[in-house]
């Protein structure tokens, strides 16, 4: 019995190592972790595989049924998690080759007006870092709508995008308060593309009743500015709902990191 349990333990560690190694090379990785940590996960996976093989050959230590059960549960959870929130069946396809090093055009021209692409999380972070938006700068941004009692009273809604720093556990939905002319009826939870500009508020407004979204347990809107929407168009949800924005130290502007769904 002891030998069986130790073999199971070794097999579970080997399984975890292989899972980490394989996942780090697939598209689905981004549904769990920030892709910049692929090398770390891959290295951890290789290390665990080697350690597990050594353990299977020369098992050490005592047995613990609860420990074996915990790792079995982890295996089931990994199977259940599948390819995460990534839409489409190719979640476990090998990750696409790195894009050619061409800076994507950060602008879109609509009706002769140039709009700067920026997702709601990036707008949140750049404003919080003290990078004020010029009054004549127009933006195009995509996100999910969230309504709350506080915002309804103000005649506004929140436009959010889930942002992952390290792993899904630290995901926070970040974005802006949006003021519109009210012609577009929004229920909440729908994806929209908004064109408009940012206006600073004279007095900060703390919105504390946003609660959770489908993407993150809590949501934040920048409290010292409002996005004045010029047009709001419903869109299909993006293939991948999260972005991976990191704030800068405030000394230089945030860069557009690329991708069609990046804004």
């Amino acid at each position: 019995m002891k030998r069986v349990l130790l073999t199971l333990d070794g097999a579970f560690v080997l399984g975890l190592g292989l899972y980490m190694l394989v996942l780090s090379q697939t598209e689905a990785y981004a549904a769990f972790m920030n892709p910049r940590f692929r090398p770390l996960t891959a290295a951890g996976g290789v290390g665990l595989c080697l350690a597990a093989l050594a353990f299977l050959i020369r098992p050490g230590g005592g047995v613990d049924v609860r420990r074996t059960l915990c790792f079995a549960i982890l295996g089931m959870l990994a199977l259940h998690a599948g390819s995460g929130s990534l839409k489409g069946a190719s979640g476990f396809a090998v990750k696409p080759p790195p894009a050619a090093r061409v800076e994507p055009d950060p602008h879109v021209v609509r009706d002769g007006v140039r709009y700067l692409k920026s997702n709601p999380a990036r707008l949140f972070l750049s404003l919080r870092a003290g990078q004020g938006a010029p009054p004549d700068q127009r933006y195009i941004t995509r996100g999910v709508v969230k309504r709350s009692t506080q915002l309804d009273h103000l005649g506004k809604f929140a436009l959010l995008r889930g942002n992952i720093v390290c792993c899904l556990a630290d995901a926070v939905a970040m974005g802006m308060m949006v003021a519109s002319d009210g012609r577009t009826a929004l229920q909440g939870a729908e994806w929209v593309e908004i064109l408009g500009r940012i206006q600073a508020l004279e007095t900060p407004i703390a919105i504390t009743d946003l609660g959770a979204t489908d993407q993150a347990p809590f949501a934040m809107v920048y409290n010292q500015a409002v996005f004045l929407a010029e047009s709001i168009e419903p869109i299909e949800p993006p293939r991948f709902p999260y972005v991976f924005e990191l704030p800068t130290s405030g000394k230089r502007p945030l860069q557009l990191t690329g991708g069609d769904e990046d804004y």
Binding site: F32, M33, T41, L77, A169
Partner: peptide, 9 residues
């Protein structure tokens, strides 16, 4: 997914 991501991290 959240539990697996914490373990992976």
């Amino acid at each position: 997914r959240i539990a697996v991501s914490i373990v992976m991290e």
